[in-house]
Nucleic acid binder design. Structure first.
Length: 641
RNA sequence: GGUCCGAUAGCUCAGUCGGUAGAGCAAAUGGCUUUUAACCAUUGGGUCCCAGGUUCGAGUCCUGGUCGGAUCACCA
């Protein structure tokens, strides 16, 4: 993009322009040599920015420093008068209930009766002046010698009315009114959509019944050098929405109409979810801790880590994939109820439900088991949903999700029931097949094909899939080279079949319980069945939202489980867990029986804000870096010839 | 990584069969002292994502690429 000379060119004669242009090109060349992006290349230069630049210079002449340091807002509404406060708590409410009722009805689009309006306006004027500040939320509507414009505080907007003969401008150098006829009107003429101004004036109701401020003093506060997002459409390009979240947030405060929550409301709701969770946990005796984000071992979950290097120690460090093992060390140390609500990092794919860094709540409670944890989790989710949305039912992608009821279903049981339902008559399912390697192979093939074809399939289709279902699977290699026991094959099939057949259909909150032990290396086995882990995952709308279990606290058994994981790692499973010797040492001091859970805050927020993409509930999601323009080098080279 | 879709004025988008690049908003200028998607008049504004190809002629067709979105695989 070429630098824009139009603005500077209008200030001098022809030779001055040539000299200045030459000078600017030299400055550009030296900045480029140091790999510094020139200012004019950071924002695109066009007629819109040129106009705003001219306006900025005019304002500098009129009021002095165009970036003053403060603006004191009045306190008529009881606290500092933000626009939202003034609209929500009109100062007249304390003195006159009837007038307050009329004011409140204006919000519904009603007009006050003519005689009441005059009386109300007298009352409002008698309250004295308010001082408010905000961003100009619309381009000013100018009518010769008077104008209307709305100011926004990011949440609400309040209209101001500027009349040429009534307004005076404030000097930004002295802070005092400029005693000069028509100065404020001239200043107003150089204001653009998006600029920040502060005004002082009295409240009144317009003919069309809108509470407004009749401006007596006008102070310029800051310039918007870039044009504002489209007032009707906001920002349509999802890339710009995510890269320039600030612009997206401005758009959500400026847009006239919108469906669903605005971006700002999404993040306000996210904040509510998080604060309600913190309050709930603290009310129940939990203490918040912070454990290392940079760790010498990436363990505690099955995932690939980000690697970095510490220069002074000259060691590799990993961004943590889970705080789990640190939190349990704290349980060993006597923190009976402990939680951490912070970021985890996983070096894996990006999708609508995965971001490389994501926010996870993990907490642990001594003397509790998996069943107590499910009860507590239900309670925590319910109060959080209630605080964030005001009810227990939310609509997510057309489905009504009811947080009033959480089902509990065994993983094995759910898969058996589904297989009984979908397998053809000619192959009536028998649960003994789940421990027959030949049958499991056929079932794997069937489920894979079934999953590919999507649901539902007819009986005929099921029969033909079943009859064809005899080919090698990814398990065969594991069996042949001895890295997979038959038991592991059965478990893997169960999990796989669950993911394909059951998981996508779990719309209502459902705890899936009874996980195979072999895929739960940190979890205690069930006292009734040593092959089953005391573990659950919570699914809502086909998405895993939480994962909890009775924590394994036998150091020798934990060591053996880690050892199994390390063997799996040896044979190529990059995500198998890494042995943490210090954790084994910690457990050896003795850890009380305990239950723990991890809850994905981003996914919970998606559910409670009806957002399909995780990137819509993360303020600054990860994206590829922007490509820099490369044209200026050639421009300079050709200009200098 | 696979598949599908998209990229045109500052913004939101049209652009027919391959034949002179369009609208609304925004901007600039003028008018208008209670408007509210203010209104009226006038004006300026384009590397049609990039590179090749086909053609007398490409925003449009073909090939390759960049960026983005959706989806699948992996994962929480």
């Amino acid at each position: 993009m070429r630098p824009n000379f139009a603005v500077s060119a209008c200030r001098g004669g022809f030779s001055f322009v040539i000299a200045q242009r030459w000078f600017i090109l030299r400055v550009y060349a030296s900045l480029k040599a140091m790999n510094i992006t020139p200012f004019d290349e950071i924002i695109e230069q066009n007629d819109q920015t040129a106009a705003r630049h001219e306006h900025l210079e005019k304002l500098r002449e009129l009021v002095g420093n165009p970036y003053p340091n403060k603006f004191g807002r009045s306190r008529l509404s009881g606290d500092e008068d933000t626009i939202t406060r003034l609209l929500g708590h009109p100062p007249i409410a304390e003195v006159d209930a009837e007038m307050a009722a009329i004011l409140a009805s204006l919000g519904e689009g009603e007009r006050p009766p003519a005689e009441k309006k005059d009386e109300l306006n007298e009352r409002l004027k008698a309250l004295g002046n308010v001082r408010i500040a905000g961003r100009m939320a619309v381009p000013p509507r100018v009518m010769g010698k008077a104008a209307f414009v709305h100011l926004s505080d990011g949440i609400s907007r309040l209209q101001i009315y500027v009349r040429k003969q009534d307004a005076v401008a404030i000097s930004n150098d002295t802070g005092e009114p400029i005693d000069e006829e028509g100065k404020a009107w001239e200043v107003f003429g150089y204001l653009d959509h998006g600029d920040f101004i502060g005004v002082e004036g009295y409240l009144f109701i317009t003919n069309t019944g809108e509470l407004s401020v009749h401006v007596e003093k006008l102070q310029f506060l800051a310039k918007a050098m870039l044009p504002m997002p489209d007032k009707m459409h906001g920002i349509a390009d999802p890339e710009i929405r995510q890269r320039q979240r600030y612009a997206d947030l401005i758009a959500s405060s400026l847009q006239i109409e919108h469906d669903g929550l605005t971006t700002r409301e999404v993040f306000e709701r996210r904040a509510k979810i998080i604060s309600s969770i913190r309050h709930f946990l603290e009310d129940h005796g939990y203490i918040e801790v912070e454990t290392p984000m940079l760790t010498p071992k990436a363990t505690g979950a099955a995932a690939k880590p980000f690697v970095t290097h510490h220069n002074a120690l000259d060691i590799e460090l990993y961004a943590r994939i889970a705080p789990e093992l640190y939190l349990k060390r704290l349980v060993v140390g006597g923190f009976e109820k402990v939680y951490e609500l912070n970021r985890n990092f996983r070096n894996e794919g990006i999708s609508y439900k995965h971001n490389p860094e994501f926010t996870m709540l993990e907490f642990y409670c001594a003397y509790m088991d998996v069943n107590g944890m499910m009860d507590f989790c239900e309670e925590l989710m319910r109060q959080s949903v209630l605080k964030a949305t005001g009810g227990l039912k939310v609509t997510y992608e057309g489905n009504e999700v009811d947080f009033g009821i959480f089902r509990r279903v065994g993983m094995r049981q759910s898969v058996i029931e589904e297989l009984e339902r979908i397998l053809p008559e000619s192959a009536r399912f028998d649960s003994a097949w789940l421990t027959d390697i030949t049958r499991v192979r056929q079932l794997v093939a069937f489920v894979l094909r079934y999953g590919d074809k999507g649901k539902p399939v007819s009986i005929d289709q099921a029969i033909s899939i079943w009859e064809d279902a005899d080919f090698t699977t990814s398990f065969d290699k594991g069996i042949e080279d001895g890295t997979l026991s038959h038991e592991q094959v059965f478990d893997s099939f169960l999990v796989h079949a669950f993911e394909i057949l059951i998981e996508p259909n779990l719309i209502q909150p459902t705890f899936i319980i009874d996980f195979p032990k072999s895929i739960s290396p940190l979890s205690k086995a069930s006292p009734e069945n040593p092959q089953i882990a005391e573990r659950f995952e919570l699914f809502i709308n086909g998405m895993e939202v939480a994962n909890g279990f009775s924590e394994l606290n036998d150091p020798k058994e934990q060591y053996d489980r880690f050892a199994d994981q390390m063997k799996a790692r040896e044979s190529g499973d990059e995500e198998a867990m890494v042995l943490d010797e210090d954790y084994i040492r910690a457990l050896s001091y003795g850890m009380p029986p305990a239950a723990g859970i991890g809850i994905g805050i981003d996914r919970l927020t998606m559910l409670l804000t009806n957002k399909h993409s995780i990137r819509d509930v993360i303020l600054f999601p990860h994206m590829r870096p922007e490509r820099k323009g490369t044209s200026t080098d050639e421009t300079i080279a050709s200009e200098e010839k």
